[in-house]
């Protein structure tokens, strides 16, 4: 695995948004800071973090909707400048599934129209019959059949779960190698969430598609990315990256620890922690950040070391961005 070229490789990605401030001085918000991430073919990576930690921005950079302020993106070893660069191999190889299935489909176009256009756009020589056959095949894969029943409908006539499946069909219609799924199940009824996740798992196994699963929910991430990795994000940085099973059972970074403990467990006999290992519940601000650790205000293990620039260190299970890792790990014993 180590010797293979990653499917997608992000190197030191920074993202700065300009926020119109006062007349004289614009404010700059450092949304992503020094993100490096490798995604291999057929792999599932869960991006987990609080709202505002930059996980959606990172997803949009991967799909090419945003251009990073600095940093490099390599697709199968080739440098990529942006999705609108047709010469690049990543053309149409990365697709995006959004959170709100209602907003992701044009309300005035039928499902058929929404599915037909991208396929025809990619395969300009295909006749209508060929495209129709492809659509039929997609509807079989996502489990909506007989397909005529759904194709002639408008988005508002379908249920949330069905719309999410349509989004899935649209994403795989261009046979991408990587799908970025931004909270794909957070707006879906509980009883249907798993079936959507199962469908994505199936696509991952059968079609060997890689997935980047963006979510704030560790439980569904654990289910979906069972054999994959997790990248825990905090204020625009990946603070911990490792196999998801290990990270959840033995979290290293102080933030990951708090996050894991905060997740409610569907079992009343389970006794979770009453107090989270955090100094305050207040999420730090992205504005006026200093060089040092972004988590230091909330961290129980904070020392003067934390004001320096952070580097990644290895714990037994993961890459961790924390200066006092050894102290943190020692406290366990």
């Amino acid at each position: 695995m180590e010797n293979k070229t990653p499917l997608l490789s992000l190197k030191n990605i920074n993202m700065v948004f300009k926020k119109p401030g006062s007349l004289l001085k614009d404010q700059y918000i450092h949304v992503l800071r020094d993100i490096s991430l490798d995604i291999y073919a057929g792999e599932i990576i869960a991006l987990v973090g609080e709202s505002g930690c930059g996980k959606t921005t990172l997803g949009k950079i991967i799909t090419g909707l945003y251009k990073p302020t600095s940093g490099e993106i390599y697709f199968e070893g080739n440098k990529v400048s942006g999705i609108f660069d047709k010469k690049v191999t990543s053309f149409n190889e990365i697709q995006f599934i959004q959170q709100d299935s209602y907003a992701a489909l044009n309300p005035v176009r039928t499902i058929y129209q929404s599915l037909y256009a991208p396929i025809k756009n990619k395969h300009k020589k295909w006749s209508k019959k060929e495209v129709d056959a492809k659509i039929e095949e997609l509807m079989q894969i996502i489990g909506l059949y007989p397909s005529e029943q759904y194709l002639s409908k408008y988005p508002h006539q379908l249920s949330g779960g069905q719309r999410q499946r349509i989004l899935m069909a649209r994403a795989i219609s261009l046979e991408p190698k990587l799908i970025v799924a931004d909270e794909p199940v957070s707006m879906i009824d509980v009883s249907l969430r798993l079936s959507i996740l199962n469908l994505m798992k199936e696509l991952n196994e059968k079609l060997k598609m890689s997935f980047v699963y963006i979510s704030h929910d560790l439980s569904t991430s654990r289910y979906f990315a069972a054999n994959g990795k997790v990248a825990v994000m905090y204020l625009g940085e990946i603070v911990e990256l490792g196999q998801i099973a290990d990270v959840i059972s033995h979290p290293s970074h102080p933030y990951t620890r708090a996050l894991v403990q905060a997740v409610p467990v569907p079992d009343p006999t389970y006794k979770g922690a009453d107090e989270l290992p955090l100094k305050s519940m207040q999420l730090g601000s992205l504005e006026d950040r200093t060089e040092g650790c972004s988590f230091k205000e909330r961290c129980l293990y904070c020392t003067s070391e934390c004001n320096k620039k952070q580097t990644y260190q290895s714990s037994k299970t993961a890459q961790v961005l924390c200066c006092n890792l050894s102290t943190v790990l020692d406290k366990d014993k």
């Binding site: 149409n92 697709q95 907003a103 929404s114 256009a117 756009n121």
Partner: peptide, 22 residues
Amino acid sequence: ERDYIQICKVMHMSTFHIIFRE
């Protein structure tokens, strides 16, 4: 700025398509 137009951009649909069809 809607999601479905963003998807069109991810899918490399033409500007003509985006303006007249979407």
